Simulated assay, not measured.
Amino acid sequence: VWGYLLGPLCRLKPYTLEWLRAYPLREGSRHKQLAAKLGGLLEVLKPSSEAGVDASNLPGSLVALPLFNPLREAEELRSKIKKCLGINVTVVISDSDRLYIHRSSGFALTSRRSALKRSLYLGFLAYIIGRTFRGKFAPFATPLAVVGEQLDSFMLLGLTELADRLRGSGAGRTVFEMAERFEVGLEEVTWRMLSSIKHCPAVLFKPR
């Protein structure tokens, strides 16, 4: 469906459509089953990173599961930084999955549950609407949890998007891109290959 109907509708790039059309059935079905269990129907129907299950930058057929409670993780991290360093920081946990901000109203449609206040969670429907009507919606990385000083929506989105760009995509944004980079099969990427790539899991912003 995504390779032939929804993908072109959402204006996905030609090479992305090729990857979707070559989606491996055996591995893909297992991935979809896991995503359905974790995120339900609205999540599993996304073309990639369904329910936050991410297979990029991992070897073989391993996947990274989403944080089950991002807010609690952010609170614990902030508490440990305060205890060890004696400083107060605002901790933002984000995901490269895009949410879509309506350019006129500033209201967001999200494909993941977000910490953004003025937002509506629609799962894969947010992805379709945001990409199909790109003139009316702007994509941003998704803040999943915020603990500490509360940031206004535009500051939060700006910092989240900037952090996402600074972190980069490591060995690739998708398993297809990663395998292509190393010139191996989808399940043939190794830790040794990945260790050759610079990885930046966190970004620190300091106000002037």
Score class of each variant (00 low, 15 high):
W2V: 10
G3A: 14
G3C: 08
G3D: 09
Y4L: 11
Y4T: 15
Y4E: 12
L5G: 03
L5C: 09
L6A: 13
L6C: 08
G7T: 09
G7C: 04
G7L: 03
G7V: 05
G7R: 08
G7H: 06
P8V: 09
L9E: 12
L9C: 02
L9G: 00
C10N: 03
C10K: 01
R11N: 14
R11W: 11
R11G: 01
R11S: 12
L12K: 04
L12E: 15
L12D: 11
K13V: 06
K13R: 14
K13H: 08
K13G: 01
P14Q: 07
Y15F: 14
Y15L: 00
T16R: 15
T16N: 02
L17M: 07
L17K: 02
L17Y: 07
E18S: 14
E18H: 10
E18W: 13
W19S: 13
L20E: 03
L20W: 08
L20R: 07
L20F: 03
R21M: 08
R21W: 00
R21S: 11
A22P: 00
A22D: 14
A22I: 00
A22G: 02
Y23D: 12
Y23F: 15
Y23N: 11
P24C: 08
P24Q: 13
P24E: 08
P24D: 06
L25V: 12
R26D: 08
E27Y: 09
E27P: 02
E27R: 09
E27Q: 06
G28F: 07
G28I: 05
S29D: 06
S29T: 15
S29R: 15
S29E: 12
R30I: 00
R30V: 01
R30K: 14
H31T: 08
H31P: 03
K32W: 06
Q33S: 07
Q33W: 02
Q33M: 12
Q33T: 06
Q33C: 02
Q33E: 13
A35Y: 10
A35G: 04
A35N: 08
A36S: 13
A36G: 11
A36R: 13
K37S: 11
K37Q: 13
L38D: 02
L38T: 02
G39A: 10
G39T: 01
G40I: 07
G40W: 05
G40K: 05
G40T: 05
L41E: 14
L41P: 00
L41W: 14
L41A: 04
L41K: 09
L41G: 01
L41N: 04
L42R: 11
L42K: 12
E43V: 02
E43K: 10
E43H: 12
V44H: 02
V44C: 07
V44T: 11
L45E: 07
K46I: 00
K46A: 15
K46G: 14
K46N: 06
